[in-house]
Amino acid sequence: MKPISSQFQERLFGGVKIGDELPQLSYKVTATTVILGALASRDWRPMHHDKDFAIERNGVKDIFMNTPNQAAWFERYITDWSGPKGRLGRMKFQMKGSVFPNDEMTFFGKVTDRCADECGCGWITLDIELRVMDELKTSCQARIALPADDDDNPWKKGRQDWKP
């Protein structure tokens, strides 16, 4: 198999313990971040690109990041940690506040559970928080399958063996 880019570590199920922390990811949000994210997810609603609309109609200080783009940020944060063989099974999130241009958002993540299912798939549960300064903006719980060893590959699990 072609070696996976050295930027990405291939994380194996056996090497993960409950309580492990993911490396933090910080990112300075700009208006471009918000608008590019909204348009990439085909979300044309004006509160994600029109500051006057966001202030006057939504009563907030600026345009703000939309939900599908936040999901894409969480996915990136998780697979930066897992490597490309990591296969997301489930993601749940709750938004508690908006993310605006000029916010520096930081992602924090922790392993809260690990188990193997009856099909031999190794599952990791992650609790992740998106914070700006000390304020929790979005909490996320994700379940991701990791390979058992170098020859295993969760993406090859067929319908019968994939129980997300």
């Binding site: 990112y27 590019l36 930066d80 490309p84």
Partner: peptide, 13 residues
């Protein structure tokens, strides 16, 4: 690719 670019996701997959 536009979505990946919007979050700077370099996952080679």
């Amino acid at each position: 690719w536009t979505t990946l670019a919007s979050v700077e996701n370099g996952n080679p997959l």
